[in-house]
Design a protein around this nucleic acid. Sequence first.
DNA 1: GTGAAAGCGCTAACAC
DNA 2: GTGTTAGCGCTTTCAC
Lengths: 349, 349
Amino acid sequence: MDTQKQNESKVITIYDIAKEAGVSAATVSRVLTNSANVRPEKKERIHRLIEKYNFKPNALARGLSDTRSKVIGIIVADVRNPFYADLFVACEVAARKAGYTVLLFNSLGETQQEEKLLEKLQEQRVDVIIQVGGRVDDLQSNKEYVEKVKHLMNTIPMVVTGKLDGTDCCQVRIDATKSTELLMEHLIGLNHTRIALIGGSMSVQSTYEKCQCYKQMLAKYNIPFRPELIAQDGFYNFENGYDRMNKMIAHKPSAVIAINDFTAAGIMRSITEHGLRIPQDISLVSYDNTFISNVLAPKLTSIDYNYEAFGKKLVKAALGMAAGKEISRMQMVTPSLIIRESSGPAVNP
Amino acid sequence: MDTQKQNESKVITIYDIAKEAGVSAATVSRVLTNSANVRPEKKERIHRLIEKYNFKPNALARGLSDTRSKVIGIIVADVRNPFYADLFVACEVAARKAGYTVLLFNSLGETQQEEKLLEKLQEQRVDVIIQVGGRVDDLQSNKEYVEKVKHLMNTIPMVVTGKLDGTDCCQVRIDATKSTELLMEHLIGLNHTRIALIGGSMSVQSTYEKCQCYKQMLAKYNIPFRPELIAQDGFYNFENGYDRMNKMIAHKPSAVIAINDFTAAGIMRSITEHGLRIPQDISLVSYDNTFISNVLAPKLTSIDYNYEAFGKKLVKAALGMAAGKEISRMQMVTPSLIIRESSGPAVNP
DNA sequence: GTGAAAGCGCTAACAC
DNA sequence: GTGTTAGCGCTTTCAC
């Protein structure tokens, strides 16, 4: 009854365990961290007590003591966007497997918020920070932010999915050019020549690259470039896709590349409302291959990144940096094309 | 040049600030926490130094010292599901506003994983835990899990979105009955009598309640109950919706209630493939009102929970419990009906 | 109003 | 192998 009570209320520490086991706290710590040999019988006794009291070492104390918190901070633009959610979960799984915890912050599109989040992660003494989306997506890295990160990186290494010119961040990037090649070759192979590119903004690095590659591919296949088929001065959402497609209809594209699945959904809506069918009248393809691609009708042909592998790569890079290892500062994620129902042969012009 | 160097490299502490300010660490701590009066000039001097070095107090040390980490642990089934993502972000925003950090863990559908996550949060010494989805959704609370939580709650209070019979958890629940009433009244008002209910499992509390209410509403409006119009022995995803609807078609429902937006998407697919139109031939409505409702064509009529308010309520309850306040152990979230394009009048039978 | 000192729970030399 | 001791960086009595 007495031990029962103890068991129930107070938070126990390694001292409590040590005392009852008749050893010192250091010994308990040793079995906890497996950092040195302990006589089997004592080890056994200690394990039993840990079990008995369901003892869990205080991560705060541990982090304080050895100056590594074993947590990875992650900043994403918005987990409500399945692209980020997929990537975050992949990171969480990979981190957990390595004995790390992930701490997620959403910047929710407020770029100035990002600096605050960086500071919060610093307060939490995360061992390394992974930033996905936000200012690391910018074609022109923000001066102030770069300064902030440079300073921060004296203490905490960073891994980003985009870039931050002038910093020593490790970059793990999606190959936007390759992604676009896949899409363009798929469409051109289906005899499309009037290919529109809709959604996103040219101030975003990956979007810029996609547009560049789009033009190169046209040139490569001797297809005339028509500026009116490009609409990349907006957002990445449904509404923008819808609005832009409404205007694009007049230019009679035979195929449309959407900057992501959200935008594709808006484009699909517009096409359907104009009484056209996908893919019989217009083909529609997109980047990201989130579950949205699977939920729409017709299902979208889309570019996949293998989120699990992407997350693993990010975490591996992060842990490498945290350990002070010399790792490659630039790594690429290889995209692949998932063909579904939304793309088909071009109709004869 | 010298101070510059210091500034750049080592992590500074309250002692460094104290030393340079010519005061004791205690005084710096006082201005940091605003816990006592400090002579204005010193305060000023300290603030300047904090600014100069961009000093951030070590949250681990702080948490160790005052035994409150100021972090809220959140366990969700899967943030890749927009329902959880919406709720999580709402919690994060509310928590941040209160000076708290949130630590998110995904159980990813492995119920036995939940106990592990609970322990992990315990290690991190979170002040309180919010669990959304998973075992707290069960109609019959799992015995083992209940024991685990009961024990845990001697130290860390918990808030759940479902229930955990036998524990002292604070329950913040969606009113599933009210949700169903709204849906049923909407459909019945449109003259539907052959209303199907598809998706989910009866072993889940909220689904069970929805089914009960469904029957009550039929009775209330003198509509005969047809068991074949119910399919609630599956999952909550697209595939289940699709498969179930394929079978349901034969029973000629004039309207279908989907257990959530994912399921609704699958149902929509099936209906369309059968050459039927929504809502002209069949009406389709759902619970949750995630962005999926807006992305599908036609847009879904769905039940909304006001995620922002829901998150606030959860966090408020959590902070209340963490502070040891006596708060209501059962709170309801009021649903509302969002009418869009997927529901319309019943065709004459 | 402010400093000294103890303590939060753990890890890591350092002895023996 | 194992105990002793000294921190890790902060908060908080307790004096003065």
